[in-house]
């Protein structure tokens, strides 16, 4: 997920900001940053500076990690209103990219080509919290977006074919071999029993009832 960061040799201090691309669907792509000024990352100007309240920590391991993060945004509309698209649009599945941009601590200007992606994932949930404390006269308005890494999404993906006619016909439209799976499901078979016709199932279609004297005589003649 992350890329190698150029070694900052000869200095003890680094300066950086976070740039977030929040894609909530067509026409709702937000470019957010915690820098002191608008910054351009991958051709997009991150102008929204008053919305980002917090980003939870993200895990990075040697192995591919399925980390999730939460991005907390201000619920007070500034340049953008995040709550409206969250409530009115199916934002689950929206894309989230978090990058880190490095600055020169001496000049506070962006270092050229020092943009590193830190997280890529999709929105899996959102939460809007509105807390009012009338006694203290305090309000809290926050919108939180939960994001899963791309790897986590791939792990949750259903692979292969389920044993039903719908899935079978999805891959083989003319194949009818799974059409009766629904009827066969939970049917009990008396394997080894002599076939006597009847209901057409592979067995009697019922449990052996040894209290049935006619059946006993037929099975055990003496």
């Amino acid at each position: 997920m992350s890329t190698a960061i150029t070694a900052v040799t000869g200095t003890v201090s680094i300066n950086h900001c976070v740039a977030i691309t929040l894609d909530l669907g067509p026409g709702n792509v937000f470019y957010i940053s915690d820098a002191y000024k608008p910054i351009t990352v991958n051709g997009n100007v991150h102008t929204e500076l008053g919305a980002l309240l917090n980003i939870s920590s993200s895990q990075e391991n040697l192995r591919a990690a399925t980390s999730d993060i939460q991005i907390t945004l201000s619920g007070i509309p500034g340049d953008e209103d995040y709550i409206t698209p969250m409530l009115n649009r199916p934002i689950k599945g929206g894309l989230v990219t978090i990058s880190r941009v490095f600055f020169d601590p001496e000049t506070m200007l962006e270092l050229p080509n020092q943009v590193y992606q830190r997280f890529s994932g999709v929105i899996t949930n959102f939460a809007i919290s509105e807390d009012s404390d009338y006694g203290q006269g305090k309000l809290t308005r926050q919108a939180q977006v939960s994001c899963s890494s791309t790897l986590s999404v791939l792990e949750n993906k259903i692979s292969g074919q389920r044993t039903n006619s719908a899935d079978r016909e999805k891959f083989f439209p003319s194949d009818v071999s799974f059409d009766r799976v629904k009827e066969l499901q939970n049917t009990e078979f008396d394997f080894g029993r002599e076939y006597t016709g009847g209901n057409g199932y592979g067995g009697s279609g019922r449990n052996i009832d040894y209290t049935d004297i006619e059946d006993l005589r037929r099975r055990f003649p003496f």
Binding site: V12, S13, I14, C17, D34, A35, Y36
Partner: peptide, 12 residues
């Protein structure tokens, strides 16, 4: 004993 410093490019 080596110190490293990281700061956010905020408006202070």
């Amino acid at each position: 004993g080596r110190t490293r410093i990281s700061s956010i490019a905020s408006a202070v």
